[in-house]
Amino acid sequence: MAKRRKVGNLLALAVLSALVQRPMHPYEIAAALRGWGKDQDMDLKWGSFYTVVRNMDKHGLIAAVESVREGRRPERTVYRITDAGHAEMVDWAAELVSTPAREHPHFRAGLSVLAVLHPDEVTRLLRRRLELLEHDVTAARDTLAEHLKTLPRLFLVELEYDLAMREAEAAWVRSLVAELTSGEYPGLDLWRSAHETGEMPAELTELAERTRATE
């Protein structure tokens, strides 16, 4: 079980990854994270940004270096990463890379209630999803190839991962559509009957009751 971190918001990890480059004030940090596309890699809640920065300072993960003023703008505090913050960043990154975490994608949620849809409708919807996935895969390949012209692969590995996940999902959806279209999908007749008659087949009712009894 992962240890409880002093500041568990992934935004904190993003801030540490920015400050490891050089000391910055919060506005610079936010601009850097947006420029690097970190909000595409992590679920960053920008509304809590300054609260996260203050909490990190409180817990000794970052420390104020100086306060600066540019023109008539309010005074800004420049922060640096501390030794404790560096250790936390490395440990956190290692945990994220090494330890699979249970996630709840929207697609999985939809699949969990797939039976509420008619199988013909499911086939249509999955074909639409497959079109979008194939478009995403093509765009992701082009984007990765373009970035590889100017950036080391090390800084693009998350794009490789996104591409691999999209390709794997597209392959799985394609195979599911093929089973539904050919009629080879197990229990397809019962599923179709439930929607066309408005009555749950006895086989499915009994299965649901057995499953509930074992919980």
Rank of each mutant, 00 (worst) to 15 (best):
R128N: 10
L114D: 02
L96P: 11
V122I: 04
A115Q: 08
H135F: 10
E70Y: 09
G85V: 05
A140T: 08
H59A: 00
V122H: 00
L176Q: 11
P100A: 15
A84C: 06
G71N: 07
R102T: 15
E103P: 02
F49Q: 12
L132D: 07
T123L: 12
A63G: 08
A170Y: 05
V137H: 06
P119N: 04
L96H: 14
R127W: 03
R73V: 01
V68C: 07
E103D: 11
E75V: 11
D83L: 11
D142F: 07
R129P: 00
G187M: 11
L188P: 04
R153Y: 11
G183N: 10
R108K: 10
T138F: 04
V97G: 12
E121M: 11
E70C: 02
L114F: 05
W172Q: 14
V157K: 12
E167K: 08
D83Q: 12
V122R: 00
L154P: 00
E66L: 08
G110K: 04
A164C: 04
S67A: 15
V177M: 09
E184P: 00
H135I: 06
S67K: 15
D162G: 05
V116G: 02
D120C: 00
R153W: 08
Y50W: 07
A194Q: 03
G85K: 02
R72S: 12
E167T: 13
R72H: 09
R153N: 10
R54L: 06
D57G: 01
G85D: 05
A63D: 09
R128T: 09
Y79S: 04
P186R: 05
A194H: 03
E95D: 15
L151C: 10
S98W: 13
G71V: 06
T138Q: 13
L132P: 00
F155I: 07
T123I: 01
L156Q: 03
A93M: 14
H195A: 05
V52T: 14
F49T: 10
D120R: 08
L144K: 03
A94V: 08
M165I: 07
T123V: 03
T181Q: 12
V90N: 02
E103A: 14
L159V: 07
P100W: 13
A109F: 11
V177E: 03
T99K: 15
H59R: 03
N55V: 00
